[in-house]
Amino acid sequence: MMKRILVVEDEPDMQSGIKDNLEFEGYDVDTASDGKEGLQKILTDSFDLVLLDVMLPHISGFDVCKKVRLENNNTPIIFLTAKGEEIDKVIGLESGGDDYLTKPFSLRELLARVKAVLRRTEMQNPSATNHEMQVGRLKVDFSTYTAWVDGEQVKMTSKEFEILQYLLKHKNATISRDSLLDNVWGYDFQPTARTIDNFILKLRHKIEDNPNEPQIIITVHGMGYRLVHS
């Protein structure tokens, strides 16, 4: 089936250029020219991927992403921006983005990122991890990306699900921060240590009886993390 991609970009030449090249590669492409229109389309239609500019009229790309994730919509999002500072990358990833592409970028790089994110999405096959799993206080369903803590449904970002799924696939093994970055985000970007640590902290608050004394997601000092699970 043809993959559907939404391009949310306010620069007309950039928007049409991306659209034309993606269509040439065989994708079904829709567009939006501001954050408000983009948000509405993401929440009311079905896409396999969103290319989301950060600096948009009405609503910024970061805020669009946050609002989408608050609606439990896990459509993969690649941020497009002229900014290249590390803090912007951290904000983008922590707001729920899946990848980050800095302008100006080549067509080859854009297509590589699109294919990589779509491939990772396809690989998140629930058969690779049981549909429903209990991890400490947290129950997760990887087929629907839903989660519950003590019977109450809770919101989790797509990255929280993906990190947990990766740790479960390598349970009882020590996983480095670099390994999490390479296999969850899928490209060579070195964040501050707190980027990965913040996601782990969020998971611990859902999983552990006492997040300050974790018994399930253990820190292996100087190396990374280990998920202890039978």
Rank of each mutant, 00 (worst) to 15 (best):
A147V: 04
L6G: 01
A112P: 05
P12D: 03
G38T: 00
Q134M: 09
K139S: 12
V68G: 00
L167D: 00
G38M: 00
K89M: 11
V154A: 12
E23I: 11
P214K: 02
L39D: 00
R4P: 05
V50T: 08
V29T: 11
L164F: 06
R177P: 01
N198D: 14
E25I: 06
V90R: 05
G35Y: 04
D178R: 13
I216L: 10
Q124I: 06
D182Y: 08
H229A: 10
T146Y: 04
T81C: 07
K41W: 00
R69C: 02
R137M: 08
V50C: 03
A193M: 06
Q165G: 14
D88S: 08
F24Y: 15
V90Y: 05
I5H: 01
N210C: 01
R177G: 07
G96S: 04
Q165V: 12
P12Q: 04
G224P: 03
G136M: 01
N125V: 05
I163R: 04
K171Q: 10
M156A: 02
T195R: 02
L227P: 03
S179N: 12
E213D: 13
M2L: 09
E94K: 07
I207V: 12
V228Y: 08
I196R: 04
E94Q: 11
Q215K: 13
K3Y: 07
L167Y: 03
Y225W: 14
S158F: 04
L49V: 07
S95R: 05
P57Y: 10
S158I: 05
A147C: 11
E122L: 14
T192L: 12
V64S: 00
G84E: 08
D45S: 14
N198H: 12
S176A: 10
G61V: 04
V64Q: 01
P12V: 06
C65P: 02
D45V: 03
L43I: 01
D34T: 07
V68H: 00
Q190A: 12
F161H: 03
C65Q: 02
S230V: 13
E85Q: 10
